[in-house]
């Protein structure tokens, strides 16, 4: 059976095309559950821990006796886990594909890498001039600004509105949290930032 008969109806052929294309898209587009939800959870847990330690005033007298070092460690650990999930999703989706989207993905990935490193170096240069209790929010606000902007850029590159909107949302939450001052930035990023990323992942998964 190498050259199968043409199937009976155009309707069946159309259905065949649609089914095959849906299956292909599911394979080629990284699983949104792995791409977004782990980041949302990481922000919820990580920024949530920082908030519990720092409190609304951001002075270290929060609900629980957690130092900022512990909070930061939790944030990084959960983000590393999220990063691993994301890489798994990317490898699964792109493992068999060569060509232009590889170059696009590499450039986009490099933008994140360069963005965060540059931000880290720049921020570290100015941190010694800042009062102690603003250092955490300072790093956090810049870090999430870079993340939000790159989500927007990614939305543009992959023409994915939900990703773009997540970027806008993260930047808005970041700005509002920073303007409110103290530990608000941690609280808002945990609940609204993390919630936004989880919602984006679930929505994209449902509508793929």
């Amino acid at each position: 059976m190498t050259d199968d008969e043409a199937p009976p109806t155009p309707a069946e052929m159309l259905r065949l095309i649609e089914e095959q294309q849906t299956a292909a898209m599911r394979r080629f587009i990284p699983d949104p559950l792995l791409m977004y939800v782990p980041w949302g959870v990481a922000w919820f847990v990580g920024f949530g821990t920082l908030f519990l330690g720092q409190g609304l005033a951001g002075d270290g007298n929060g609900l629980l006796p957690i130092t900022w070092q512990v909070g930061l460690a939790v944030l990084w650990a959960t983000q590393i886990i999220a990063f691993v999930f994301m890489i798994i999703a990317l490898l699964r989706a792109g493992g068999h594909i060569k060509g232009e989207s590889e170059a696009r993905g590499a450039m986009y990935g490099l933008a994140w890498f360069i963005g965060f490193n540059a931000m880290g170096i720049l921020a570290t240069r100015f941190v010694p001039l800042l009062p102690q209790d603003t250092i955490g929010p300072f790093y956090t606000s810049l870090f999430m600004l870079v993340a939000g902007l790159l989500y927007m850029a990614g939305g543009a590159v992959y023409r994915l509105w939900p990703q773009f909107l997540l970027g806008v949302w993260v930047v808005v939450v970041d700005v509002v949290g920073t303007v409110l001052g103290g530990g608000w930035i941690y609280l808002l990023l945990a609940v609204l930032g993390g919630g936004g990323a989880v919602t984006t992942g679930l929505w994209l998964r449902r509508h793929r």
């Binding site: 065949l16 294309q21 080629f28 068999h96 232009e100």
Partner: peptide, 22 residues
């Protein structure tokens, strides 16, 4: 207009131009 080849073409058509599939 043969199921198998239609499926091949439909699958490859989901990739952007300039991409190849192993």
């Amino acid at each position: 207009h043969a199921q198998a080849r239609l499926k091949v073409v439909a699958t490859l058509n989901t990739l952007p131009q300039g991409d190849r599939l192993a």
